[in-house]
Design a protein around this nucleic acid. Structure first.
Lengths: 171, 171
DNA sequence: TGCTTGAATATAGCCAGGCTAACGAAATCA
DNA sequence: TGATTTCGTTAGCCTGGCTATATTCAAGCA
């Protein structure tokens, strides 16, 4: 009635690759570390979003606006919508929320009078720099502690994780 | 008016650690790989959740229930609420949604008549195994491709990322 | 110039998924 | 046994998505 191998689809791979128990153990440790890190990230993201009273998408939007603005680009609602993968209608409400919270301003677009330039307020830019910057610094430090060869190993592993998985895009 | 260092808080760390340009470049590559992987994960999660017509929390709940059940544990709504970090009221609605979608059943708890045992249906268990299992297999394969020393490097790096960041819990 | 078509944002109204408060039923404790 | 605590549910609210539609302006053309 209950299949004990349910959460253990590794057997097939293990069998194919001829790994011994010790190898499997190490691999599992890597995966566990990966899982732990993701969980930490998720939790910290929840904490900092609670702190700034923003939802996940709003936060992503803010990061995007700040990044673009720091490169001197004019950020329009349409561009935000596209970046986030949501509709422009939802983006209008999103900007309403950010504006109500004093995070952004709607300024006229310099050349297209149909459009807008969304600008982040100075206070929010500072706050974002503090919270986002902290976790960025943590990542930076961790990567900086590695030797050159180790960095190469880690980078390769990460690319390996992300790379060939782009197959199941289905629309 | 516009500070070009806004998204570049790395300068201080770089300065402290006495890294040269080449080092910085490599570190940035590591971080970029990290970011790319996270983005991939996020996108794929969106895709598979759309496929199963489930929200993020519902999916997490399902994974939790399947995992516990596979260890022979009785899963109660309260335990689900605690694991997800949401209220029991929200969990009631969550279970309503999962039950309406045919993903779980409310069965009587074997020993406590106030409580319930939430059970995943066979169909959903199979579907979850397929989608979740695929990305798990991808991670497993990537980790399996590493040598023993490389696995150690990666694990250490990941722990380093997740580890000391648990300081800012602020309730 | 004046008209038409398309682009960019906004509005209205719907649904999902969180929350708090209050409740009933069962377990537990004095 | 009676009081208290625990567990899940219900009711009602708010946020953040969506679609469909409206509004305003830009751009191309007769």
């Amino acid at each position: 009635m209950m299949d004990p191998r349910v959460m253990d689809p590794d057997q097939e791979i293990v069998h194919r690759s001829g790994m011994d128990d010790r190898d499997v153990d190490e691999v599992v440790r890597v995966l566990e570390a990966l899982r732990a890190w993701r969980e930490t990230e998720r939790r910290m993201s929840v904490v900092s979003r609670r702190y700034m009273k923003l939802g996940e998408t709003d936060m992503r939007a803010l990061r995007y606006i700040i990044a673009m603005q720091s490169h001197g680009r004019v950020v329009t609602p349409g561009a935000i919508a596209e970046h986030l993968g949501i509709t422009t209608a939802s983006t209008t409400k999103l900007i309403d929320r950010l504006a109500a919270g004093g995070h952004v301003l709607r300024s006229p677009h310099p050349s297209d009078r149909r459009s807008l330039a969304i600008e982040v307020t100075e206070d929010t830019r500072r706050a974002a720099r503090e919270t986002v910057g902290r976790s960025h610094a943590r990542r930076f430090t961790a990567a900086a502690r590695l030797t050159a060869q180790e960095r190469e190993v880690v980078t390769r592993f990460l690319h390996d994780l992300a790379g060939p998985g782009t197959d199941e895009e289905q629309t």
